[in-house]
Amino acid sequence: NQASVVANQLIPINTALTLVMMRSEVVTPVGIPADDIPRLVSMQVNRAVPLGTTLMPDMVKGYP
């Protein structure tokens, strides 16, 4: 099973992602692959992302 990117904390709308905000976890449904975490750094979320939420491609501005 492939690990996905999961919010490690509440991420407010328009926040630029940092490594501490994300963790990898095997979840269903599958979200953004954990391998993409380095690419996500400094990209902004377009909505508030609660703790434990799987990051989906449509939540991150400019992804992929």
Rank of each mutant, 00 (worst) to 15 (best):
S4D: 00
S42T: 13
T54F: 03
T18G: 05
P64F: 09
M21K: 03
K61Q: 14
I11K: 00
D35K: 10
P64Q: 15
M21F: 05
M56W: 05
M56F: 13
I32N: 01
M22H: 00
G62K: 07
L10A: 12
N14H: 14
D58K: 08
P29C: 04
A16E: 11
S42C: 06
V6F: 01
L51F: 13
L19T: 11
E25I: 07
Q2C: 06
P64D: 14
E25S: 08
I32Y: 01
R47D: 06
V41R: 07
T15W: 05
R39P: 03
A48S: 13
V26D: 06
N46W: 07
I13N: 12
G52N: 15
L17G: 00
Q9N: 07
P29W: 03
S42Y: 08
I11S: 00
G31C: 03
Y63E: 05
E25M: 11
N46P: 02
V20W: 07
N8G: 10
V26L: 13
M43I: 04
T28M: 15
V41S: 03
M43L: 13
S24V: 15
L19N: 06
M43R: 09
L19E: 08
M21N: 10
V26C: 04
S4M: 02
T53D: 09
P64C: 05
T53K: 09
L51A: 10
P33F: 08
L17H: 01
S24L: 06
T54R: 04
V30N: 15
V45C: 04
A48T: 07
P50G: 14
P29R: 05
M43Q: 12
E25T: 09
I37A: 06
V60T: 01
L17S: 00
S4C: 03
S24N: 08
V60H: 01
A34G: 14
P38S: 11
S42R: 07
R23D: 05
L19K: 12
S24M: 11
V45L: 11
L19D: 07
V26I: 12
T28A: 13
V6Q: 03
L40M: 07
S4T: 04
V60Q: 00
V45S: 05
L55R: 00
L17V: 03
M22N: 02
R39F: 10
M21Q: 05
D58T: 09
A3I: 12
Q9V: 06
V30F: 07
I13D: 14
V26G: 04
G62L: 08
